[in-house]
């Protein structure tokens, strides 16, 4: 968590990487909104601490985030004695510039980097003067804080289920990346935002399975289907994690299940490719589907 926060020191202005990341999942109105808690959300997601820091999911509204800690029974009022005794590195610390300890009056949030031992803490904060900086804060402005249970693992993997949704042509001798027009998942904006890519929010071990149906071929025509990794922006092909060569059946169709296990991280993305080496165009049918389970490593 702290490493992720340190990595953003010096970020300033808006929109920025943090607000773009939040807006991608929660709406463009956050692009230019106050981003102190968006920063905490970003650091948690970048460091695989979502379960510990964001028990109710993404947070930009500081009051709700403070209440999350209170509901977990982890809330400490922002007294000098509590800070001295209980504020650990990684604690989420909430500020009320009027000096109160009421959660409903929380203005701002940051993360404790060090407990100074004198009733004060040294923090890293996003959107302090519209920048990410180190600060020193005392009980006079701290409403309270809570210590996330770092190391808490999610019990179940993230699962994203995708459907092609529309027939998609592959020219003779050409390749294409399957575009997913339908996504069935509990977190619909977490994956496949550009319609082709699956991106992990941290280092993940992935078990993927695609049921690919292709028509328009002649018996014996050859093509390849592959789970392929690209760089994060999708501009550079990296490798085929799993690739299978298929031949059309007697009706000129290919129906293949392509499964595999592979790793994803925040530096790459996953796509399903069809490489048509036959002399005629093929059609990836709309019923093509895929399911990817992402496990923390």
């Amino acid at each position: 968590m702290l490493e992720a926060a340190r990595a953003t020191l010096g970020m300033k202005g808006r929109p920025n990487t943090i607000t773009r990341d939040y807006a991608r999942r929660n709406g463009d109105e956050f692009l230019s909104a106050a981003w102190c808690d968006q920063a905490v959300t970003y650091w948690a997601r970048q460091s695989d601490n979502v379960a510990a820091v964001l028990p109710k999911g993404d947070r930009a509204y500081t009051v709700w985030h403070a209440q999350d800690g209170q509901k977990l029974g982890r809330w400490f009022a922002g007294t000098a004695a509590n800070l001295k005794a209980h504020a650990k590195p990684g604690a989420i610390v909430f500020f009320d510039w009027k000096g109160g300890d009421a959660i409903g009056a929380v203005d701002h949030v940051g993360v404790v980097e060090r407990n100074l031992g004198d009733g004060r803490v040294q923090t890293i904060e996003g959107n302090t003067g519209d920048a990410c900086k180190r600060r020193v804060r005392s009980a006079s402005v701290i409403a309270g804080f809570w210590n996330p249970e770092y190391g808490l693992e999610d019990d179940v993997p993230e699962v994203v289920s995708l459907g092609a949704g529309q027939d998609q042509k592959v020219a003779a001798g050409a390749e294409m990346v399957v575009r997913w027009h339908t996504e069935f998942t509990d977190d619909p904006k977490a994956h496949g935002d550009d319609g082709v890519a699956v991106r992990a929010s941290g280092t993940r071990w992935c078990v993927c399975d695609a049921l690919v149906k292709i028509g328009g071929l002649q018996p014996g025509d050859e093509l390849d289907v592959a789970w392929s990794r690209y760089d994060r922006d999708g501009e550079k092909f990296l490798d085929d994690a799993w690739r299978l060569t298929c031949h059309a059946d007697s009706t000129g169709r290919v129906e293949v299940s392509l499964g595999g296990q592979l790793s994803l991280s925040t530096t790459n993305q996953l796509r399903l490719r069809v490489l048509n080496s036959s002399p005629r165009p093929a059609t990836v049918e709309k019923v093509t589907t895929a399911r990817i389970a992402l496990f923390k490593r």
Binding site: N26, G27, E29, F30, A33, A34, W35, C36, D37, A60, Y61, T62, V63, W64, F95, W97, D107, H108, R120, N127, T128, G129, D130, R135, V136, R137, S138, S140, V141
Partner: peptide, 22 residues
């Protein structure tokens, strides 16, 4: 909405008080 709450209730003051010896 969360966005509305953020606009009205979060970081409406750009600077909080920091310590004199920060």
């Amino acid at each position: 909405s969360e966005a509305e709450l953020v606009v009205t209730g979060v970081d409406t003051h750009d600077w909080g008080a920091t310590e004199d010896d920060e």
